[in-house]
Amino acid sequence: MKLKVNRLGLKYGKDVIFNNLSFELNEGEILAFKGLNGSGKSSLCSCLTGLFEEDFAKDNIRGEILYDNINLNNMSIAEKCNAFGLIFQNPDDQLFSPLVIEELAFAPENLNVPREEIQRRIDLALKTCKIEHLKNAKINTLSGGEKQLVAIASILTMQPQILIADEITSRIDKEKIDDIRQILIDFARSGKSVIMISHNENDLKIASRVIVLERGKNYAN
C-alpha cells in the first residue's frame, strides 16, 4: 500500500471542512474525489502535499497521512517531492518561468538531479504530454490547454510516485481533456498512483474508486 490516510480532519477555525476521513491508495490505482464547492477537495490536496503552514496544521489538521508507512510530518521537502506531485487547477498559478524548458527544469534542478538526467526527464515529460514542439516556447504565448499540459509536464519531471490532479480538466477543451485523461491513465499503468479531483463525470470514469466529499461531514459515522 502506497498511501494510507487515517482519520484525517480539517477545520478553518470553528468551520469543520471534513472529519475522520480515511482512505488507502495502492500502486496503479486512480482514486477520484468529487464534491461541491467548499467541500474541501483542494484543501485535501494541500493536506496531502503538506502545503499548510506548521502553525495552522498544528491547530486545524488532525489524523495522519502515511506514505510507505512514513508519516508525512516526518518527511523532508525532497522526500515529499519524490512522493507527491501536485498539479494545480489553474496553470497560471503554477507556471512562473518565461520559457517552457525552464519551467520543466525547475523541480529537478531544486532536487539536485544531475544535468543529463534533467534533460532526459524533460524530453520524456514533453513526449508523454505530446508537447515536444513547445520545448523552447514562451509560456505567455501558449493557449490555456497548452499551459495545462506544460503544468503537468513540469510535475512529471519530478517523477513523483503519486500524482495529485486538482480539477485539471476544468478549464480546457475536449480534445486536450482526452489527452490529459490518457496521461493520467498511463501514469497509473506505469505502477504509480493518481489522486484526481474532478466534477466531470467523464473524468470520474477513469477512476478505480470515487469518494464523495461533503462539507462538515464526519466520515466516522
Binding site: S46, A78, C81, F88, E102, N110, Q119
Partner: peptide, 25 residues
C-alpha cells in the same frame, strides 16, 4: 497570487537541497 506561487514553488522542491543543479551552465 504570490501565496499560490509560493505553494507552486514548495511542491516543486524549492530549497529542498542546499545544493542545486543548473540546467544551463
Amino acid at each position: 497570487r504570490s501565496e499560490v506561487l509560493a505553494k507552486s514553488m514548495q511542491v516543486r522542491g524549492f530549497r529542498a537541497h542546499p545544493k542545486r543543479t543548473m540546467l544551463r551552465e
